[in-house]
């Protein structure tokens, strides 16, 4: 009975005897697929990482660099081959019964989440998660409504079939399904892949909104350097299972050559500013938005 009460009202610090300033902490985790076979592959190699509550972090890396494997450790879909995963200062693998509550607290939105929509109506689809949590109907309805409001889908969408929505709307409905479980940590794997520029802008501004309004800790997995630079103030770069760079966008994009060598890129404006800087050292580097670049160039015109 007690366990159920906990599930009904998950407290932010539920069960955290030792309070930790970090909502997520990875201590030297490694993950080896197909261990002891010829296909053995070390996907995560001794990664340590600390993320504070309320942070918004981008995780970038080329396909196969270990990003997806890493994030699946955060809600216990994968268990590290060695090392510890701590959520709110607590090792999540000490007590098997707690895994369910971990998965509610750490919401994972997969790539192309709209492929996972399956109900006949948007409202029902979003309600699926909270329904499984054993909440009252009233509570489920409240949660669904507020989740759909956060992602910007109004009442006119409630009883539509997911197939009647646009690509961007479908994706937002899928994100609402995860939000309705009221996670503290939200992990989004490539949330803008395959969307047109307007769809991309919509999703990104909703994510920003979730971060500021709901105070969620957000991890954004992305191939898009522009998205990472626009939204976050901390970027983690993964390569061959290791985090090889952890810093502000300015620090990370300053290493354009290194990023290119590991199959990544820098925002186009950032490369441009580097070229301009080589010609005229009065122009600063470490700029990746159009506005900031225009400001810097206009300063030369009218100092």
């Amino acid at each position: 009975m007690k366990a159920q009460t906990n599930r009904l009202n998950p407290q932010p610090n539920e069960g955290a005897e030792e309070t930790s300033p970090y909502i997520i902490e990875l201590r030297q985790i490694s993950h080896i697929y197909n261990e002891d076979s010829v296909f053995e592959k070390r996907a995560i190699d001794n990664v340590s990482l600390k993320i504070k509550a309320g942070e918004m972090v981008a995780l970038i890396g080329h396909t196969g660099s270990g990003k997806s494997t890493l994030i699946q450790h955060l809600n216990a879909l994968l268990k590290p081959s060695s090392g510890m995963v701590l959520i709110n200062g607590k090792d999540i693998h000490t007590d098997k019964a707690k895994l369910k509550s971990i998965r509610q607290r750490v919401g994972l939105v997969f790539q192309y989440p709209e492929h996972q929509l399956f109900e006949a109506e948007v409202f029902k689809d979003v309600a699926f998660g909270p329904n499984q949590m054993g909440l009252t109907e009233e509570e489920v309805n409240t949660r669904v409504k507020s989740a759909l409001e956060v992602v910007g889908l109004d009442e006119s969408c409630y009883h539509k079939s997911p197939f009647e929505l646009s690509g961007g709307q479908k994706r937002r409905a899928a994100i609402a399904g995860v939000l309705a479980m009221r996670p503290e940590i939200l992990i989004l794997d490539e949330p803008t892949a395959g969307l047109d520029p307007r769809g991309r802008d919509e999703i990104l501004s909703q994510i920003k909104h979730m971060h500021t309004k709901l105070g969620l800790t957000i991890i954004l997995v992305s191939h898009s350097m522009d998205d990472a630079a626009r939204l976050t103030d901390r970027i983690l770069v993964m390569n061959k299972g290791c985090i090889i760079c952890d810093g502000t966008p300015i620090e990370v994009f300053a290493q354009g050559e290194m990023l290119k060598n590991i199959g990544l890129d820098v925002p186009q404006i950032s490369s441009l500013m580097t070229c301009l800087h080589e010609k005229n050292s009065n122009l600063p580097t470490g700029i990746f938005s159009v506005e900031a670049a225009a400001d810097a160039i206009m300063k030369l015109v009218r100092p």
Partner: peptide
Amino acid sequence: GLGVPGVTELAHELRRRG
């Protein structure tokens, strides 16, 4: 609902600023 390449956008922004 579309955009232009980043450098093109910057060129337009600079034109707006004179």
